[in-house]
């Protein structure tokens, strides 16, 4: 479904994505995992063909650079947060995208109904909550029943209930044979939806593995955020990775997935390198064993 060969994207002197290649078969699911600034979003934009990059991307055999609009017809895209004219009403915005994707009014209504937005057609986009916007973006993405869904951190702005709904819907879509590619910061999402994880750091693929190999523990894990006394987060991240932890930098501390009964492990690993932890915040309580089911 996706064939990416030697994708490289530079912004001035910075290599946002460096020589990334991978294949994804129809019906498969890949998660992009990595810190903020690792290149996940840039890679997604290259796959969509909305920014120019070196290398070749084929979606369903269609070259994205040469036949971009035909390739994008095979993709349903869900951004991190829906960006659409705030003044637009839900119903008219939906019809605009329905016409762009050449689907009927009935199908547009069906899509809205499927994400629980029937009756909100007169609401303006600015009046929607984060969760509703995300459901709306999902409805647009699925308008023409595309075989590939690309999602850029689709649940990052949602509460636990909203996240659960989106993940459940994506699981159902996978069962229906859809191909998924998504960026995520949540181990439970990756484990429950993906069969491969591409770990990116500084624009490069550093691991192409499975979720089970990335988080081998059967124990419940928690994502903790560590705030360092000295702001040398890159060295700290390297030290934690060497100690076997899965880490991502999110611009505000280091996020580490740890077994619930070993939360101090990363602090000990950092202390060995004389890196002092100033504060710790527990972000998520992730039931890996449940997600695996």
């Amino acid at each position: 479904m996706i064939r990416a060969e030697s994708i490289t994207k530079r912004f001035g002197r910075v290599r946002a994505v460096s020589d990334v290649s991978f294949d994804l078969d129809r019906g498969g699911a890949i998660a992009l995992w990595g810190s903020n600034g690792a290149g996940k979003t840039t890679l997604i934009r290259c796959l969509l063909g909305v920014i120019r990059c070196r290398g070749t991307v084929r979606i369903g055999g269609v070259n994205v650079r040469r036949r971009g609009r035909h390739a994008r017809a095979l993709i349903g895209y869900v951004p991190q947060e829906l960006a659409f004219h705030d003044d637009a009403r839900l119903g008219s915005a939906m019809m605009f995208f329905a016409r762009l994707r050449r689907v009927s009014r009935a199908r547009a209504s069906e899509s809205l109904a499927a994400v629980g937005l029937t009756g909100h057609e007169r609401k303006r986009v600015r009046d929607l909550s984060g969760g509703m916007k995300q459901r709306f973006a999902l409805a647009i993405a699925l308008l023409n029943d595309p075989p590939l869904i690309i999602l850029d951190e689709p649940t990052s702005n949602l509460d636990a209930e909203g996240r659960g709904e989106v993940v459940e819907t994506l699981q159902r879509l996978r069962r229906d044979g859809k191909t998924l590619l998504f960026a995520s910061h949540r181990p439970d999402e990756v484990i429950s939806l993906a069969d491969r994880v591409i770990v990116m750091e500084r624009g490069q693929v550093i691991r192409d593995t499975s979720p089970i190999e990335l988080w081998p523990t059967e124990k419940p894990i928690q994502v903790v955020r560590l705030f360092l006394t000295m702001a040398n987060e890159a060295d700290a991240a390297d030290a934690l990775r060497e100690a076997g932890h899965t880490v991502h930098l999110n611009g505000n501390g280091l996020c580490v997935a740890v077994p619930r009964d070993n939360k101090a492990d990363p602090i000990v690993a950092l202390a060995r390198r004389q890196i002092e932890v100033r504060n710790i915040e527990i972000l998520d309580d992730v039931q890996i064993s449940e997600a695996k089911r």
Binding site: G60, V62, R67, R69, H70, A71, R72, A73, L74, R99, L100, R101, R102, E110, S111, A113, A114, V115, G116, R135, L138, A139, L142, N144, D145, P146, P147, E165, E168, T169, R172, L173, D176, G177, K178
Partner: peptide, 20 residues
């Protein structure tokens, strides 16, 4: 939120999904 209906067996013709 109910599931979004999709039909995996229905082939998507790229030419029909993109406007002229």
């Amino acid at each position: 939120m109910s599931a979004i209906t999709s039909s995996p067996t229905r082939p998507i013709r790229t030419a029909s999904a993109a406007p002229s």
